[in-house]
Amino acid sequence: MTDVTGARPFSYSFEFFPPKSEQAAAGWWRAVEALSAYDPAFVSVTYGAGASSQAPTFDAVKRLIDETDLVTASHLTVVKATSGEVDDVVRKFREAGVRRFVALRGDAPDGVGAAYRPHPGGYENAAALVKGLKAIDDFDISVSAYPEKHPESADRSADIAMLKAKADNGADRALTQFFFDNDVFEAYLDDVRKAGITIPVLPGIMPVQNLTQLRRFASMCGATIPGFIEKRLGALTEDPEAHFEVAAEQVLDLQRRGIDDFHFYTMNRSKLLIAVFDRLGVKPARGTGSGFADERARQAG
C-alpha cells in the first residue's frame, strides 16, 4: 500500500501464474522479486483444471511462502475432482502454510465454450466450494466477479445471484475479470450493492502487452475491448511500451470514482506493471528483493 500522487492512498494485489519450465521459472522469479518491492496486500497463483495441474501451483505457492514474506493465496478449482479429492488438496496446501484461496469453479473439462457439467460427487460450483473451504478452516477466500457477466450466465441478474451465493457462503472479497470500460464496472458495482452484496469488489486490471494478445484473452473470457481501446492501442503498435498508459489512466479514472483497491494481472511480467506504477507515482516500498527471506540468517538463527 502506498500513496499515489494527487490521489488517495490505495492498495493492490498481484496475480501470477506458475511457471511450466525451468527457464520460465527463472523469469517468474525475477518478476516476483521485482514486484515484491511494491509490498502488495497479497499475491495469488493461478490453478489450472484437473489433478495434473496441482503440482506447478503447489510448488510455486510453497516457494513464495517459504522464501518470501508475501501474503500468498492459491487459486483452487473444482473441475475433474470429487469434493473429497478437492478437500484433500486443500489440506495439503494448508499443511504447506496456505491460509488464503481464490475459489473458482474452473473451465469446462472439454475446453472453453463447452457446456459445464459438475463432476460426479464434486462441488457443484464456486459457491459450494467456498462453503466447503469454510467447513475445513477459517480461510481467507477471494472469488471471481464479472462486470460483463460470466459467458455462461443467462443474464446479469443470474450472474450477480451467483456472486451473492458466494458472499453468503463466506467469501471475503471478489476479484473481477479484466475490463476496460469503467462505466460498465461502475454500473455493475451499483447492481451488486443493490443485491445486498457488501464484500469488497476489486477491479481486475490487465496492463496490455499487445493488442493481438489482448484480443485472444478477451475472446476466451467474454471480455469486451471497446472501440476507443482498439483505436488507442492500434495507434501504439510501434511503441508497445506506451501501452502502460492505458492501464494507468484506467486506474486514475477508477480512483476518481471512489475505488481504492485493485487486483493486477501481471502475466509474470514486471516491467510493464512497474511502468504503470511509475505513471501513477507509486514507488517501491522497499528495496528489490527485500521481501525475500535471508536463508543464511535463518540458518544462523
Rank of each mutant, 00 (worst) to 15 (best):
R298S: 12
L254W: 07
R94W: 08
L189T: 03
V251P: 08
R216W: 10
S290E: 09
V78G: 01
D294N: 07
V78C: 06
E295L: 15
W28A: 12
I136N: 01
A154W: 11
K164I: 00
Y265Q: 02
T176E: 12
T288S: 15
D155C: 01
V184K: 14
P240S: 01
M206E: 02
F228H: 13
K166P: 02
D110Y: 07
A154D: 08
K164Q: 01
V98I: 06
P118D: 03
P19D: 12
L254I: 09
A174M: 11
P200E: 10
G196S: 02
G48S: 03
S219L: 15
T176A: 10
L129D: 00
Q23I: 14
P109L: 14
F178T: 10
K20G: 08
A300G: 03
A248R: 01
T224R: 11
E148P: 10
Y38I: 00
S44V: 08
R30E: 14
V78P: 03
F292A: 11
A171T: 04
A297Q: 06
A73C: 05
V98D: 09
V201E: 07
S11R: 13
G301A: 15
D59G: 03
F16L: 09
I229Y: 08
P120N: 00
S157H: 14
R117G: 11
F14P: 00
F14E: 02
G97F: 05
G122F: 13
P226Y: 01
G122R: 07
L163Y: 06
A300F: 12
V112G: 05
A127H: 09
L202Q: 13
D3H: 15
T2Y: 14
F179Y: 04
G227I: 14
H119T: 00
D159A: 05
A135H: 10
K62D: 15
A96C: 03
G281I: 04
R216Y: 10
P207E: 08
V102G: 07
I225M: 08
D138V: 09
S153Y: 05
S270M: 05
F178H: 11
R156H: 14
D110H: 13
S270R: 01
D59R: 13
P207S: 07
A154N: 05
A223H: 08
W28L: 08
E85N: 12
S290M: 10
T5I: 14
I259F: 14
G281D: 11
P151S: 04
V130N: 09
F93D: 13
N125D: 15
T72F: 04
D260R: 14
A223F: 07
T77P: 09
T176K: 03
D110W: 07
F42I: 04
W29A: 10
S13K: 10
